[in-house]
Structure formats: C-alpha cells, structure tokens
C-alpha cells in the first residue's frame, strides 16, 4: 500500500505530466505536419480573425443557434466543463501539494466551492451517461469507449470527493484518486478526450472557411 502510494505520488506524477505534455505536443505537431503534406489548403484558408470570431460564438453560452436549440445540454455542458477544468487547477489540496513539492503557489478555491463543483462534475458525468443511453440517436453513435471515457473522467472526481470527506477507506480512495487522476491526464492526448486540443483547430478552421471564403456565419 505504501509502495503504491509512493509510486502514485512520485514517479507516476511525472509520467502522467510528461506523457500528457509529450502526447499533446506530439499529436498536434503530427497533425500540423500531415496538414502541410496532405492538406496544404488548410494553411491557406486559416484566418485568425475568423477563427476567433467563430470560437467566441461557441465559447459564450447560448451565442450559437445550436446552443439555443438545446438549452439543457448547453447549461450542462458549460457547467460540466468549467468545473472540470477549474476544480483540479484551484482545489486547495492541489495548490498546497504543488507548493510543498515545488514551492510555487496560486489562488485556491474555498473548500466548499470545490466540493460543490466536484459534485457538479459528477452530476455532469451522470447526465451525459443517461443521455447517451436514453436518447436513441446518441446511443446509436456510442461506442464502448464513450462509456469508458465518462468513467475515466468521473473517477478522479469521485475519489477526490471521497478522500476530501474522509469517508470509509479514504486512504485507499486517496491512492485511487491519484492513480485515476494520473490515468486521466495520461489519456487526454490519446483518447477522444483529445477533443479539447482539437477544438480550436476544427472550430477555427470551420470559422475561417465560413468567414473568409464563404462570407457566412457558422453559429
């Protein structure tokens, strides 16, 4: 147990962080190179202005027609994603850990806020899970991987929450938390979670073609 803890809090952290960084950079670089080789037009039509214009309309809640057509999903998706990204970055526990290890620190969330946000992420996962099962057209699109992905994302939040509340077996939960968190981090570049890195490019390219070439709106 202690061995595992040492691994999870030591070498695994590094593997996760390095794997995440290398994976992100490597895959994006590979994409950029393939684009040069096989899709040179992508560079020709990419326009920063129109890319940003499009992204803006898709990053502000309800700024696109599609979002207005699906208000519940829009709210769920925004709350889910904001909490998903903000909570781990600003959870007091994390900030303190980082400070103790590397002596850098930043603002952290008050604990109750982090707590609520964690619950929101878990609820978000439940929401997406239920939607995936209940809605026929989403179910049709689903692969086993999509369910694994939801579990993968939910795991660090469930275990983090468990650890924080020091419920039964929280020590094990703590180790599981670290392991699942590291696993998720490591999986980000190599699974569908990579959508986070692709989004600026796919959205930006759609925005560029629609904006500069087609003189039309894509939201």
């Amino acid at each position: 147990m202690h061995e595992l803890y040492k691994l999870a809090s030591g070498i695994f952290v590094w593997i996760a962080i390095l794997g995440f960084a290398a994976g992100m950079i490597g895959r994006l670089a590979h994409l950029a190179l393939t684009a040069r080789k096989k899709d040179p037009v992508v560079y020709q039509y990419f326009s920063l202005y129109y890319a940003l214009r499009s992204m803006l309309h898709w990053i502000i809640p309800f700024a696109s027609t599609g979002m207005r057509a699906h208000p519940v999903i829009t709210i769920a998706a925004f709350v889910f994603h904001i909490c998903l990204i903000v909570t781990p970055l600003f959870a007091a526990a994390h900030v303190i850990l980082v400070m103790e290890s590397w002596n850098v620190a930043w603002w952290h969330l008050p604990d109750p806020a982090a707590d609520v946000m964690t619950v929101l992420v878990i609820l978000g996962c439940l929401f997406f899970l239920i939607r995936r099962i209940a809605q026929e057209h989403v179910r049709y699109l689903s692969t086993a991987g999509d369910f694994v992905l939801i579990a993968l994302v939910a795991a660090p939040f469930v275990t983090g929450f468990w650890t924080y509340h020091q419920w039964y077996g929280y020590e094990t939960a703590g180790i599981l938390h670290m392991l699942s968190g590291e696993l998720m981090l490591l999986c980000l570049p190599f699974t569908r979670l990579f959508h986070m890195a692709l989004w600026p490019f796919t959205r930006g390219y759609a925005g560029s073609e629609f904006g500069s070439l087609r003189h039309a709106r894509d939201w």
Binding site: K38, V42, H137, S142
Partner: peptide, 28 residues
Amino acid sequence: ETEGGARLRAYTNACVHCGLCSDACHHF
C-alpha cells in the same frame, strides 16, 4: 494513405459522439 490528411484525422478524432448535429440534418 494518400489523401486522408489532417482534416480527416481531426474530424474523426474530435467527434465526441454527442449527437448535437442530428437535428441539423433534414434526412434525420
């Protein structure tokens, strides 16, 4: 191999199977 470039990869990898495009399509 020859023509499947970055767009093919990016589109197929980015899709999160969310189905938000479904009711955009008149066939659906």
